[in-house]
């Protein structure tokens, strides 16, 4: 089996938002919609305060609430663990959006442009009517993952078949790969480091790990 997961090394992330920009470029998301974003979290009280940059997005859960509530079967879990949306099936009811505890889903009902009235060339070229009024979210750049099956390349290792956010990370904080392959990059990282997953208590089995320290 294959279970693609992402890892963010919180010790390395500097909050530069390059992954956010790369995602926007790769997926042509509309203004105000970020499938990948980096939170700037301040914790503690003065003088013991810390600042942590936390990449978030769809966690590609193994037990995703968005999939079980979806009335149209538009949201599906692929065999490789990626949670995808069929835009042609989705009715835009928003049930998945209120079921997702990671705020990862977006529904845009009106076409917004970056500069008000005049669409820029890339906005015109890449506008997709099929994504209007339906749910959308990060898909781990699934078209690249699917390309790997044809080319024999390895997602997470070969940039051509790796999610854009991971490729763009300047601090080598983001990693992607197959958790079920014991020799994969992510399996090695998970074995060598201590990790947590966000809102793990909700039982969604998220496919996004955060490294907070090396193993003792």
């Amino acid at each position: 089996m294959t279970r693609y997961v992402m890892i963010a090394d919180l010790r390395r992330c500097v909050g530069c938002q390059t992954c956010t920009a790369a995602c926007k470029h790769a997926n042509a998301t509309p203004p105000g919609v970020q499938w990948r974003q980096v939170l700037d979290m301040e914790t503690g009280t003065y003088p013991q305060v810390q600042r942590t940059f936390v990449p978030v997005g769809c966690m590609h859960c193994a037990d995703p609430p968005c999939e079980s509530v979806c009335p149209s079967t538009a949201t599906k879990i692929r065999d490789d663990g990626i949670v995808e949306i069929d835009y042609d099936l989705c009715i835009g009811c928003g049930y998945c959006a209120v079921a997702c505890p990671y705020q990862a889903r977006h529904i845009v009902h009106k076409r917004d442009l970056a500069y008000d009235k005049q669409a820029m060339a890339h906005e015109e070229a890449r506008f997709d009517e099929g994504r209007m009024s339906v749910a959308m979210k990060c898909n781990f750049c699934q078209s690249r993952i699917d390309t790997a099956k044809q080319t024999g390349q390895t997602p997470g290792v070969d940039p051509e078949v790796t999610p854009a956010c991971v490729n763009s990370c300047i601090a080598d904080a983001l990693h992607f790969g197959d958790r079920d392959d014991p020799n994969s990059n992510v399996s090695v990282l998970l074995a060598e480091n201590q990790t947590f997953r966000m809102h793990e208590e909700l039982g969604t089995d998220p496919g996004f790990y955060y490294i907070w320290d090396k193993n003792e």
Binding site: S68, V69, C70, P71, I91, G92, C93, G94
Partner: peptide
């Protein structure tokens, strides 16, 4: 009211596709 809320009202019949787990489908 629900029909007015959904983004793609002319696909409303798709609501019947997932009785296995979706309570919205079961309600429909």
């Amino acid at each position: 009211c629900v029909w007015l809320e959904i983004g793609r009202p002319w696909r409303a019949l798709h609501v019947f596709y997932h009785p296995q787990t979706s309570w919205m489908t079961r309600e429909a």
